[in-house]
């Protein structure tokens, strides 16, 4: 790129006015800004004691949970769609024949490695029965890598902990006024 390139727009530095040359307005302006901020309310939140107000807890992508159906059974049907969709390969499912008549399979074991997970939410989107969902819990920590591999019971217990604050999205769906494109079953969506 040359200096006389027509894409370069040269701007003259604005001249300081007579008052600007005395430095006084600039001096006072800088000082007032600083002092104003010195006493203004702070944006930082003292984390463990208080938390940020989340705009939409349902939309947040935090720790996973495994939903239960009305009878308290795990909703998952062990279809492996979430494990297939997962870009980080952090979901490990062992399927078994279902003891219940309403489905063929159920997960005997369902583990998520929360350390490998990138919290993209694709498992949530892939799930055909809304069994796996991301909650708004974001402060997960552990003392070892093994501890951070969440098994089925742990994931179900997260559901028990968060079901009141964050209802299942399938439960919220019929009442909410979602646009047709959000619903894959809508007739207008297929060409």
């Amino acid at each position: 790129m040359k200096r006389d390139d027509e894409n370069i727009r040269w701007i003259e530095e604005p001249m300081l006015g007579w008052t600007g040359k005395t430095f006084l307005p600039l001096f006072i302006g800088g000082l007032t800004t600083t002092v104003r901020h010195l006493f203004s309310p702070k944006v930082t939140v003292s984390f463990p004691e208080e938390r940020h107000e989340m705009a939409d807890p349902l939309g947040y992508r935090g720790v996973h949970r495994l939903n239960r159906d009305e009878q308290g059974r795990v909703k998952c049907v062990a279809c492996f769609l979430c494990a297939t969709a997962c870009p980080a390969h952090c979901i490990d499912i062992i399927a078994a024949e279902s003891p219940w008549p309403d489905r063929e399979k159920y997960p005997e074991s369902f583990t998520i490695d929360e350390l490998r997970c990138i919290f993209c939410g694709m498992c949530e989107q892939a799930c055909p029965v809304d069994a796996i969902e991301l909650t708004s819990l974001y402060d997960l920590s552990g003392k070892s890598r093994e501890e951070m591999i969440f098994d089925k019971e742990k994931l179900l217990s997260i559901y028990d902990k968060t079901k009141d604050a964050e209802p299942m999205q399938s439960a919220a769906k019929p009442s909410s006024d979602k646009t047709p494109s959000d619903n894959p079953d809508a007739p207008g969506d297929t060409p």
């Binding site: 600083t34 901020h37 010195l38 309310p41 944006v43 930082t44 003292s46």
Partner: peptide, 13 residues
Amino acid sequence: RMAAWIQDRRGPN
């Protein structure tokens, strides 16, 4: 602390 307050933070507390 002053630096934090001026930047709307809380600083080491």
